[in-house]
Design a binder for these strands. Sequence first.
DNA 1: CTGAAAGCGCTTACAG
DNA 2: CTGAAAGCGCTTACAG
Lengths: 348, 348
Amino acid sequence: MKRSKPNHVTLQQVAKHAGVSLTTASFALRGSPNISQPTIKRVLSSIKQLGYVYDRGAANLRSKDNSTVGFILADLANPFYTEILIGAHQELNKLKKTVILGTTFESCETQDLLISTMLEHRVAGIILFVAPGTQSESLARIKNMGIHVVLISRRLTDIQHDYIGIDNETGGILAVEHLLKKGHRRIAFIGGIPEMYPWQGRRRGYEKALHAAGIEIDESIIMEGMCDRECGNELIRRVMNLPNPPTAVFCFNDTIAIGAMLELREMGLTPGHDVAIVGFDDIPEGRAFSPKLTTVSEFPRIIGAKAVNILQTRIETPDIETQAIVLDPELIVRESCSYKIDLLPHKG
Amino acid sequence: MKRSKPNHVTLQQVAKHAGVSLTTASFALRGSPNISQPTIKRVLSSIKQLGYVYDRGAANLRSKDNSTVGFILADLANPFYTEILIGAHQELNKLKKTVILGTTFESCETQDLLISTMLEHRVAGIILFVAPGTQSESLARIKNMGIHVVLISRRLTDIQHDYIGIDNETGGILAVEHLLKKGHRRIAFIGGIPEMYPWQGRRRGYEKALHAAGIEIDESIIMEGMCDRECGNELIRRVMNLPNPPTAVFCFNDTIAIGAMLELREMGLTPGHDVAIVGFDDIPEGRAFSPKLTTVSEFPRIIGAKAVNILQTRIETPDIETQAIVLDPELIVRESCSYKIDLLPHKG
DNA sequence: CTGAAAGCGCTTACAG
DNA sequence: CTGAAAGCGCTTACAG
């Protein structure tokens, strides 16, 4: 663990080399208008000659500023999350912020560890995709340190916080109405964790759309699970093996939808033909799949970018009220439910 | 920008509260054996009561240690890269290292900016997926700061450095030999940037396999490009519109292969039937695609994890010789070249 | 326009 | 087993 550290060039040495005081060097370094141009040039030239590299840690310690931002998400394997990361990352780069990355793998414990680390680093703020079961204490801990948080996609209801996400209920309605228009009457809803905020919204949308069409909710075709492909594999099989299987399935997200369609093929069924599928998120894989996945888009890159904007606003004006931005989802019609059910020869 | 910073609890205050000196508090905090158990307990209890949070930046400044590691990759949209990140991330978590993330989008300029930021943060090391055209000076800059680097997948030939990657030449041979076995004689190689290390290896493998089969290289069906889906779209169209199109295509990576297969469908052709396709990387999308993509696996998670191990070894023993780990690739046969060419009715 | 001095919150010889 | 003191590399009133 121990190694002989190289002795870095310090600003002190730069100052001596340039024949100015440490104070002047410090101001010159940051191009302060209080320092004359020739002096600035001299300092800059010394910096180059000596190969000086600014020590941000030391500067932060003194100034109590910090250009570092924490980003915590659930899983890097889901493109929906990485798309959010991309959007946030680009925006953060524009603001010259450094990103500390953390992945919870949906574990609250890991999440608390990551939060601790970020607090110890005195980040300016944390953008957080909360793990299921997150207590408001976790957020309070961050806020007590004077560090700002904005939640993405998932939210907590028992504490005030900045938030950006999508209107999940409307998304659910969009998905199910589309299926209804295609003539489906028996529509399952599979995957996702009921304690999570987005699940509740999508389920509400699912119910509302069905009710509006005069259809009773059948709890036996609402199946909870995780958010990954394996969940799609398992649940589609379970739901299709029911005595009275659905003709259409609304999947909690695209990853589950793809898992479901893959499994359908294993079962000798053709997704989009034998069973209609709608997803949620709009990940690239859904576009590449055959049949191309009909889904509800969440605009992940915009969510990521806006999360950064909200955080930045909060950093600049800490005392304004918390804001919650809720984006409108959009139905992306592709191929995975392209047949009207009454046109299918083998159905009623 | 300016905000009133909260006054955090300091170790000084903890010490006073516990009735010990700052020195004792500092040692107790880290569970030093030189401090008696009762004292440690007292300090820990004060920490809890006061809500003290360790300031890692201040500690690093003094001790010149740093548990932060930089990770620079090309693009978060390519699952191959994020898989590497996942592997590295998990390993870094085990070592209790904090990750600073950077994305170059294949730009050397951005890369140098990111490197500067990480140097300013005095990270312990940088794991780097170099952008095309990277000069050895960029690496030298890092090393001069006494910061360790390990390159992933792509490497530089004019400077010594730690490295982990795959045997690209063997990968190329595996891919092309498979196509040859299926009866193909006219095999294109599309996508990728020739100045990049992996491209050169794969191309060498491509040539060797063809030569071993007594086939002349035809430069007109070797087309360079980028590493994204659009490149696949464009190049497959160009190569198929040639007077004498290939019957099989070896794609530089899976993303290109998927772009190519998508475009093939647009052209009314069936990938895997009308044209055989082999990719490289083995990303999840390739498994979900129809036809399932035959490809050469690179084990990205292992690459990421091993990169961390190499870095850790270097941090612990800075003076050992640089090591280059080259993994063996593996051919994953699926569906995208499942027909023997002489069985196809519409071919010679 | 420039400089001397204090201090950010820790760690670490050194002394007892 | 514990403490007083110096110092890591910066920034920032304050004074001139």
